[in-house]
Design a protein around this nucleic acid. Structure first.
Lengths: 230, 230
DNA sequence: TATCAATATCATAACATATTCACAATCCAA
DNA sequence: TTGGATTGTGAATATGTTATGATATTGATA
């Protein structure tokens, strides 16, 4: 079993192979890339769990790759920087790097940081078990990806569930369709906002007449909200 | 109604017309320009909400236009680039382009990207956190898009609500009809200012006799105000 | 009080938005 | 790869909102 996919981006192939060797020994699945734009492509295609990213790169440089990736994802990024190279930590933090390591590094250090970052991420995701909202006769649990209505589990596709969860997490607040597309579907989603309507309809079918404490309301000319009485 | 003004800059008039056709069908207002320096002039004069910018241009090339515009504005720019043309993505990002599309493009893709970029920008216009004004027996909450009168929620169309919110946010201040049209309806709205009267009337129906602490007053010969005692 | 212009009111036309449906595209697991 | 489930799309319909013009009413002014 793999502990996770790691994308290693460095133009120095020796370093790449070295990292691959050690990371695989630790049980990670390693993908290599030697240039910036290719790295972005591979990131999109392969969806790694962590990225080790050199700054000096052909194509796009590390900062640019970082910026590109951050447009779409919060995947942890560890920057690699050569000793002597002026490393702009401020820039790094602004662009959303999670950590950085100065070359030459020893493999133990890299492994340790990789583990540390993944552990940190893991804590944010997993033990935050309480990704759940509860109202009268309604339970939306995102840990189990499960919708319970009046005690019964209702089979619900992921997008619908995510939409409901999003709305129900902020009861009474109106969301425009565009907001929902950004916040539930994701930034680079190119789609028609009528999509939202259809998902709302499908949710309503499942939730119809269950409780008078809450409902999925249309706010005409604006968007939708999960309305809760008092 | 227009969803926004888009400046299309391309020396190929067929492409321009094609883009115009599709963008206008989507409800955008389209301005065309076939050369770089003219594009800069038109940008300054017309203040578009988004720019579709070809790189190969007579006059100034796309990069130069991009740089010129970025000196003064953060308007979103989508670069158009011919396949095979070496597109310098790095340069593009540095100069501040927001996205780019490779020709020949599929019109759906362009539309999608335009929407996506505008959607990102638009987050500012979305219903904001806790926008609410409260007076005796009156609550206007723009986060919920809700009007509460004497504890009861009164179903109110968006324009009416926005008008009331606008007036009530600045109690006792008089607004002319033209000001209200600009500030609530939006700049490019060309309408009869009698429209305001009708909306005020409808609001009054909803608010009649609720409280003597406040009221929607006509200022004869001038406009309207939300008057509050003391 | 007569007059004129500003405002209020109303009905309805024009418009914008939402719902729904059927089906197409896509994704995923066997 | 195939079939079933999910997700997205476009069109028809239904619904609600907003604009407009005609007319009545009101307020300012002489």
């Amino acid at each position: 079993m793999s502990l996770g996919k790691i994308l290693v981006v460095d133009d120095d192939k020796n370093i790449c192979e070295l990292l691959r060797l050690y990371l695989e020994k630790e049980g990670y699945n390693v993908i290599l890339s030697h240039d910036g734009s290719e790295a972005v492509v591979k990131f999109n295609a392969l969806n790694p769990d962590l990225i080790l990213l050199d700054i000096m790169l052909p194509g796009l440089d590390g900062w640019q790759v970082c910026r590109e990736i951050r447009k779409k994802s919060n995947v942890p990024i560890i920057m690699l920087t050569a000793k002597g190279e002026t490393f702009d930590k401020v820039l790094g933090l602004e662009l959303g790097a999670d950590d950085y390591v100065v070359k030459p590094f020893d493999t133990k250090e890299i492994i340790a940081r990789v583990k540390a970052v993944l552990r940190r991420i893991d804590q944010n995701n997993a033990p935050a078990e309480n990704k759940e909202v509860v109202y009268d006769k309604l339970v939306v649990n995102m840990t189990r990806y499960e919708l319970k209505v009046d005690g019964k589990v209702i089979d619900t596709p992921p997008k619908e569930l995510e939409l409901l969860y999003h709305l129900a997490s902020n009861p009474n607040r109106v969301y425009t369709r565009d907001q929902l597309l950004d916040e539930v579907w994701g930034f680079e989603y190119y789609g028609d906002s009528r999509t939202i309507d259809v998902h709302v309809k499908r949710l309503r079918e499942k939730l119809e007449g269950v409780s008078d404490q809450w409902s999925l309301k249309t706010v005409w000319g604006v968007g939708y909200k999960f309305e809760v009485n008092e």
